Computed example of a mutant assay.
Amino acid sequence: MMPKTNTMKTTIISCASEKGGSGKTTINIILATNLFFKHAKKVVLIDLDNPQYSVYKKRQRDLKELSEAEQQTAKFYPIEKSTVKELDSIIKTYYGTVDFIILDFPGNLNEEMVKGLLYVEHIFIPFFLDELEINSTVIFYKTLKNNFLENDGRVLRGVNLFFNRYEKIKVNKFAAIRRGFKKSGMPLMQSVVMDRTIYREKYRNTLQPIPESRENGEMELNEFINEVIEILND
């Protein structure tokens, strides 16, 4: 599937969910932008949300916010729009030349999108405090585990779940879910993504990372990104 001669170790990852509105696209953009700008990683973000291509269009809007002079000097990672049929070719173009290929899938993971998951090595599943969302997440995790993780020819190396839109006021409810997941042996990340509008309005930017001195410390966004990096380095 992948070229055998590479000059760089490339890892293919995705924040994915089988439900729309889970926040996966926001996290994929934040991860790509901050891995590139703050962690000096070579990244390509592939938008598979055909035909909307919301990530690709977001890059175009972000570029329009810059002056012509800024556009000429700006450094940024590539964003490619793709169909599942084109994915193999695009991955081969970048594989071995970047640290991370990040795939952004549509909200509804249909049969065609499952084919795209065959390329992914690490999947991060966001979910929030909603009974239907939790049930859907458990089913999605078990599907990945049974069909990808426990497959002898698997590419998938790890699946990690994390709380998205975490609210401190509901800490006891989140803690109860954490205990239940731990008892079931489901891999829930220690870090969480808080319920903050600024993530969607300010930090979901393809050209600018999280500002220095912001979102640092316990239960902040940089802690989540650092834990993702730790998982990928294991």
Rank of each mutant, 00 (worst) to 15 (best):
Y95H: 15
E112V: 14
I30R: 05
A74I: 14
I134Y: 08
K75Q: 15
K9Y: 07
I91M: 01
I169K: 09
I139W: 00
L117E: 07
S82L: 02
M194F: 00
K38H: 02
H39G: 09
N108I: 10
P187W: 01
L149C: 06
E133W: 00
K182H: 00
I13M: 12
N28S: 13
D62M: 13
R200I: 08
S184I: 10
F37R: 14
D195F: 03
P209Q: 08
R214C: 03
K168V: 06
L31V: 13
I123A: 10
E65A: 14
L35E: 04
E220N: 12
N34P: 00
I139T: 11
Q71M: 12
F148M: 04
K41V: 06
I231D: 09
G185Y: 01
K182L: 00
L132D: 06
F163Y: 10
I29G: 13
S184G: 04
R61S: 15
K24A: 02
D99N: 11
E131F: 09
P51Q: 12
L221Y: 02
K142L: 07
Y119H: 11
M1G: 11
E70W: 02
F100D: 11
T33V: 09
R59C: 05
N110A: 14
P3M: 07
I139P: 00
M219W: 03
N50S: 11
K182M: 07
A176L: 12
L144H: 04
Y203L: 12
K9R: 15
V84C: 05
R157F: 00
T197N: 10
I13R: 09
E18M: 15
I123L: 12
A69D: 08
A40M: 06
N226G: 02
L221W: 00
S136E: 05
K173D: 13
K57E: 14
I101P: 04
L103A: 05
L63M: 14
D104A: 11
K24W: 05
R165V: 09
R157K: 14
I30W: 00
L66C: 10
K58H: 11
E133K: 13
E131P: 04
I123M: 06
A69I: 12
